[in-house]
Design a protein around this nucleic acid. Structure first.
Lengths: 347, 347
DNA sequence: TACCTTGCATAGACCGGTCTACGTGCGCGA
DNA sequence: TCGCGCACGTAGACCGGTCTATGCAAGGTA
């Protein structure tokens, strides 16, 4: 029984010695740098394989790159983010880069700590999914590290951005509901601090809701509950809307998660879906497709967004300085949670 | 209009110069090391604040610690993992450590790449959630870095572990169903490669299912579908079980996600829940509580598991060498997806 | 007074990579 | 033959921290 001798990690010097060449040569081979003969390349690669060498990211980061992309998200439990990650990982799998994720939480302070943590860890690029921070702060971060903001309508020359075309998506939902014959349509939204109103994704969905209502001469029927995009928010918002008299015949929740809360509230109130009230969400999360939910919603291709994010970040890291802005066109997915209102429905 | 001058990051030398002391002194203050006078401490802290200095993790990692805990998970979309992260982050928030997550995917190769990525990034501790890797590989990793394995019943002196008491949890479900009067109860499980059968969490749930069946003289009614713990797996498994004649009156799915698939399959087959078939899951994910799902399931406190994981890892990093093994006692949550079978139910 | 211990502060090596500057050999045109 | 450019390879500084070894002064002891 020998003590579990913690053997030293293989370093670049070990490889160099083993191959009978200099550290610099090994480094060049690893980085596919210019100025290495074929024989040298072969020799070093063999030595790397024989010793099982893997470069240490911390040491590389100190001088060059860390080969790490940091992803900031409020919480990993949000289903739509999983799709984005699938796309991102898929895109990065070809490259030498690795994606790491960090939770920023729902408060400004915790998010700032998370962003700092990524910067301190020298990530080569940051993907921020729906960050809370003020635009000036994002620009400050972007000055230090290639940054891509996803899900916010800020456009800054300092960073790239990817957004769903929330205007189009919301129009799709509203036209669908109105075409079904609904007039009393409620909406659930929320308010982000520190973000310019016009840049807020929830605000754009809400504004579009109001605009379409007005365009159909339904200004008098506008009813908005401002809570949050969570299940709890949807629940609270629905209860607020259902308290009105006459109550709405349809509710357009700003997100699928909120829509789940709406369904829960309707269930609790003994109202049927879509018999008494139609419900629509936004995001087309996996759950929306489940037959027990069967939610009409807007599909924005999260996988494509993630993949695009990866590509844009790699481009930035390679040196692109001009800002890229990408918009994904959403589509409507109609399921059983929406139908024409009952003709006699009032109060 | 000036070019956005990318100013150099503040380093420890800058702080030292600003405070008129040595680098070593600053380093000591940062690490709360012994041998620093109060006046020195104050002076350095002031300089740090004035310059807005934050140490660079890569540089620290090269010599000492990276103050990073790496979390490996197959995919961030798995709801139960979100609870674990909540607990972990909560525990670490007091310390200087930061949790970063990495996706290992569902294949051995991709998981290995993810684990290597964490090691290469010099994390101080690794939390592996239900890893696929063989035990020998885990032990090898644990020799290099403090490791905690969550959700697998391997016990190794090389690493700590946290498990749900799957035996008890499965018993709770089975006793509940049998007490309701069910006799034809099906089960959905899956098979992990590389893991010793006795250490597999799904296997333990399945074995307990079979044992309880036998203890109630129901050996002849045992029906197991081996698919996976995903929604798709649950769907396929349910279709397999429903193909039997007479069909089961209850299905115990090994996980909530699988149970969702079961519900979908039942819906598609035109069978009601719990009228025609009762369904039980495992994990008590947030979704199980939704009134449209209302799934009877087993609650294992993910937040406590995550918090415990954080504590144990910090202890290991501080030098504990003996292995710790933690077991969480689950409880049954009864909802509307289970009820007594219809008396006349046959075929 | 000589010697030892203890507390505090510092200089400089060190971690494992990258990168710059430079040396060497070879082919080619004048 | 000489000079030049080019391809290839290497030595050693460097990144920003930590850590070891050492210096120095104050206070205690014989």
């Amino acid at each position: 029984m020998v003590a579990p001798e913690r053997r030293r990690r293989v370093t670049i010097s070990d490889v160099a010695k083993h191959a009978g060449v200099s550290k610099a040569a090994v480094s060049k081979v690893i980085r596919n740098d210019y100025g290495v003969s074929q024989s040298m390349r072969d020799r070093v690669k063999r030595a790397i394989d024989e010793l099982g060498y893997r470069p240490q990211a911390a040491a590389r980061a100190l001088r060059g790159r860390s080969f790490t992309i940091g992803v900031l998200m409020q919480h990993i439990g949000i289903p739509f983010y999983a799709e984005i990650m699938t796309g991102l990982v898929d895109q990065l799998t070809e490259s030498d880069y690795q994606a790491i994720m960090i939770q920023g939480g729902t408060r400004d302070k915790t998010e700032k700590r998370a962003i700092d943590a990524l910067i301190d860890r020298q990530v080569d690029g940051i993907l921020m999914i729906a960050p809370l921070a003020a635009r000036t702060h994002l620009e400050q971060v972007a000055r230090e590290i290639p940054t891509l903001v996803l899900g916010r309508h800020d456009r800054s020359p300092a960073y790239d951005s990817i957004v769903d075309d929330d205007r189009t998506g919301s129009e799709l939902v509203m036209e669908h509901l109105i075409e079904l014959g609904h007039r009393r349509i409620g909406h659930i939204t929320f308010h982000q601090e520190h973000v310019r109103p016009a840049d807020q994704m929830p605000r754009i969905r809400a504004d579009t809701y109001e605009r379409v209502m007005r365009e159909h001469d339904l200004a008098g029927e506008i009813a908005v509950a401002t809570t949050s995009y969570t299940e709890e928010g949807g629940y609270d918002g629905a209860r607020e809307l259902l308290g009105r008299s006459p109550r709405p015949t349809a509710i357009f929740a700003g997100s699928d998660e909120a829509a789940l809360g709406v369904l829960a509230a309707l269930h609790e109130a003994g109202l049927s879906v879509p018999g008494d009230v139609s419900v629509a969400g936004y995001d087309n999360t996996k759950l929306a497709a489940h037959p027990n939910i069967a939610l009409t919603t807007v599909d924005q291709d999260g996988v494509v967004m993630g993949r695009t994010a990866g590509r844009l970040l790699l481009e930035r890291i390679e040196g692109r300085t001009s800002a890229a802005h990408f918009s994904v066109i959403p589509s409507l997915v109609v399921r059983r949670s929406t139908a024409s209102p009952r003709p006699h429905s009032s109060s």
